[in-house]
Every structure is written in structure tokens, then in C-alpha cells.
Design a protein around this nucleic acid. Structure first.
Lengths: 235, 235
DNA sequence: TCCCTACGTCAATGCCGTTGACATACTCTG
DNA sequence: CAGAGTATGTCAACGGCATTGACGTAGGGA
């Protein structure tokens, strides 16, 4: 077999499909994101993707080695969107907070795709840019390199971890979605105070809080702690 | 159709399969965990599960409505294992740290299953116990209820979020696993210092740190920040 | 001992990803 | 502008997947 996939920058011949569509890796990624946004994660199949593109399903394999390969491309696209238009302000804490919220938001905008992609390391251009930016903020803030790297790691994984969990909540098929809320209302809100005193005492607060993402709060806690350490060591 | 699934506590007739195995929900969950541990997440199919059990695949549907239903049961089982044998010491910070590490460890012990299950809310017995325990620790420590609930939420979601990410790293098929490491070695370790100064300056630290979980560090940061707030408001 | 039905089994349906062979239309060379 | 070479779209086929309806049998209750 001559290699089935030709790297995008080397592509010369762009031959339209029977239905007149000119394919590209970018078009396929965008279509996949749209498909998944419209019909859920379970709609992301090669066959449906082909139909949505207006091409034979197997044409996808001329651009990606496998569905997993496509997923990596989707992941990098989401990271790219998170950074689009971002500029540093010079205030390390505000910058880090903004990047964290942007990453989280970019994945929440495509929860079904986030669920599939957020835990993948892409090693591609957009990911590398993000790493460079975040490390730069921390080092310029005055964190010594070992500390900068450790905080970078915790910060990024925290962002992505919350992105996965919160995406999961959004991505549940609407039937299961309301079921998930019912779980809290039904199972937790009416537990007996003698067997579960702490849940019973805070049930009203819990049901309110579980409907929101805990990420902004968790992010602030992380930044609080980082700032305290900077004050201790650096300043 | 008479309902296909009979709730476990009401089961009376335990009829062995052709191969002489007596099925139960518990046996199926354990077998699924073993299967997934031995052969990866992609081995968790109803057909293989049937084979591993010594039963017709469709027998599983006498115990679970769907594979998703089975997944919820697996998730609750993992939460249960995380708490098995745990006892509070009275030191809120040590207790919370221990629970966080236990949750993380329980999922890391079954990374393939964790990847499938960690983002699901089960609403089942083991999950409820965990919620009650964590809330109790925070309220007894002196956190006011609204703060206790907010920290609880951030703490739990952070634990599960890192569990997912770290499970993903462990669960990659070994081919992709080394590939993931290669990504760091190849893509990051040799980036040009003029285009990516911060990555280049910390490459040696990065490659060392990315091989570990950032969870313990992130957990300590969260506990630091919580403790600081407690000192400010409560004491 | 007989009835009832829970539960294991079987077979069928319509999906899925992936691949090898094929055909065609694009680009490149002269 | 003609012909060659091949990139890329298409087709058909494979084996595997979850799920379900029908069936029969064995276990428990009377």
C-alpha cells in the first residue's frame, strides 16, 4: 500500500467528490465538530461523517489514519480555539485565570467533543503554543523553574480535568441529563437526617451548587495557593 | 415484555448457565473490571463479557438494562473500593488528603474502567457515603455551610478530573503509550529556544514532571487555600 | 406434583471501523 | 496541449458490535 494519508501541507490534487465537495483536513474537523454538536458524541461515526461531508465514508481515511487520529486533530483544534485572540496583560494571576477560563469555555462549547478529546495529548502546534504561553506567564511572574513547571502541570491538568467532568454533565443525552438532576433532587435532597446529617443539613446548598461548574472556584483556590507560595519564596 | 431486569435483592431463581456458572450483578461487575484490566477498555464488550463469564452475551441484559447501566454500577463499585477501610482521624486536612488520594488511587488501579466511569454521577450507595463523609469532615473542621459545600464540590470534581486524565495516560494502549512519551521527548524536548524560550529553558524539568501525576501537588494547593480561608473566617 | 415464570439461549437486525481493489481526474512534464 | 503517473474518491466486503424478540427449561412456590 502506498501510504494512504498525505500530509496536508503537501496536498496538490484536490479532487471534488461525486457530490461536488472539495475535502480537506480542516473541513473534516469542522464538520465533525458540527456533527457532534448537533447530534451528540454517538453521532461521530465515519459513516455519518461521510454523509455530512457529502463523500464516501472511506474518503476520511485519505486524511486521517483512523478515527483516533481524527480525534487528536479535533483536540488540537479546541485548544487552538481556546487561545484565539488572547493577549497577555502582564498581570500573571489575571492572565492565568483568563487562560484557564478560556480553555474550560472552549471545551464547554463542544461538550460532546470535549468528552472524547480533552484527555488526549496532541503534541501539535496549538498545544505547544499553549504550553509556551503558560510557562512564560509563570516564569515571568518570578516562579523558579521547578516550581513553575509543577504549577504549570497542576494548572493544565486541572483545567482539562474539569473540562472533562463538566462536559460530561452537558453532554449527557437530554433524557439522562434531567435524570442526573433528578438524582440529586431525589436521592440526596430527601436523605434522612439521622443517617446522613451532613447531606441533610446542606441539601439546599448542594442542589444549588451542583448545577454550576466548580471550576472557577477551584481555579481561584489554585491561584491563591500559588500566590502565597510566590510571596513566600520570590518576594 | 415482562421487564427484562429483576432488581438484585428480589432475585430468587439462580439458574446456572450451560457452562455451570451462577450469575449475579456482582459477579458481572467484577468480571467486567477484570476483563478491562487485563485487555483494556476496548475489551469491555457484551460479547466478550459473556465469554469471560461463561454465559451467553445476552444474559447480561437480565441484570443490566444496557452497557451504560453496567458502567454506572462499575463506577459505584470503584467509589466503594476507594473508601473501603477508611476511618477519620479527626485532622480535617489529613483526612481530606487521604480521601483524595484514595479516590485517585482507586481509579488508577483500574484506569481503563476509570476512563469510562469516573465522570458519571451514580447516585448509588457508595457515592452517597462518600459525599456524607467529605461534607462531614469540612463541617466539623469549622467551615460554614456555604463554604463547606463549595470546597466539597471543588475537591470532588478535582479528584475525579485528575482521575480521568491520569487514567487516560495509563490506559493508552501500550503502542500509543510510548508514543505519548515520545511526543514529549520528540516534540517538546527539542523545540528551538528562539521560538519557544520557556519550553526550551525548562524542557528537562518538563519531561521529568509530565511522567508523574500532578494530582498530589494540585491537592496540596487546594488544601493550602482552604486552610488559609478557614484561618481567615473561622479562627 | 404441577404450575408459573425467571432467566439462559438462540438467531436476527442494523449498525460500526477499516481495508483492498478499482477508476478517474488532477498535476506535471515535455 | 498530449500523455504519464498517481493522488484521491468510490465500492464492496469483512468481522465485530449492542440490542431485542421468541423460545424452552429448570427452579421455586403451592
Amino acid at each position: 500500500m502506498t501510504e494512504r494519508v498525505v500530509p496536508e501541507p503537501e496536498r496538490k490534487r484536490r479532487r471534488p467528490t461525486k457530490q461536488g465537495v472539495v475535502l480537506s483536513a480542516e473541513l473534516i474537523v469542522d464538520t465533525a465538530l458540527r456533527l457532534v454538536g448537533l447530534h451528540g458524541a454517538e453521532a461521530l461515526t465515519v459513516r455519518r461523517l461521510g454523509a455530512a461531508l457529502g463523500a464516501d465514508p472511506s474518503a476520511v481515511y485519505r486524511y486521517f489514519h483512523s478515527t483516533d487520529d481524527l480525534l487528536i486533530a479535533i483536540a488540537d483544534e479546541l485548544i487552538g480555539r481556546a487561545q484565539h485572540g488572547w493577549r497577555p496583560t502582564g498581570d500573571w494571576r489575571a492572565d492565568l485565570r483568563a487562560i484557564g477560563l478560556r480553555i474550560h469555555a472552549a471545551y464547554q462549547a463542544h461538550p460532546q467533543a470535549a468528552l472524547l478529546a480533552a484527555h488526549r495529548t496532541t503534541g501539535r502546534a496549538n498545544e505547544i503554543t499553549a504550553v509556551e504561553n503558560i510557562l512564560g506567564i509563570l516564569r515571568n511572574a518570578g516562579f523558579p523553574d521547578p516550581e513553575a513547571v509543577r504549577i504549570y502541570h497542576a494548572f493544565v491538568d486541572q483545567s482539562l480535568g474539569f473540562a472533562v467532568l463538566d462536559a460530561a454533565a452537558l453532554a449527557l443525552p437530554s433524557a439522562a441529563l434531567s435524570a442526573d438532576y433528578q438524582v440529586w433532587q431525589a436521592s440526596y435532597a430527601r436523605l434522612d437526617a439521622t443517617t446522613h446529617p451532613h447531606i441533610a443539613a446542606t441539601a439546599h446548598l448542594l442542589t444549588a451548587d451542583m448545577n454550576r461548574s466548580a471550576y472557577p472556584h477551584a481555579l481561584d483556590l489554585l491561584l491563591d495557593a500559588a500566590e502565597a507560595r510566590l510571596g513566600r519564596s520570590g518576594g
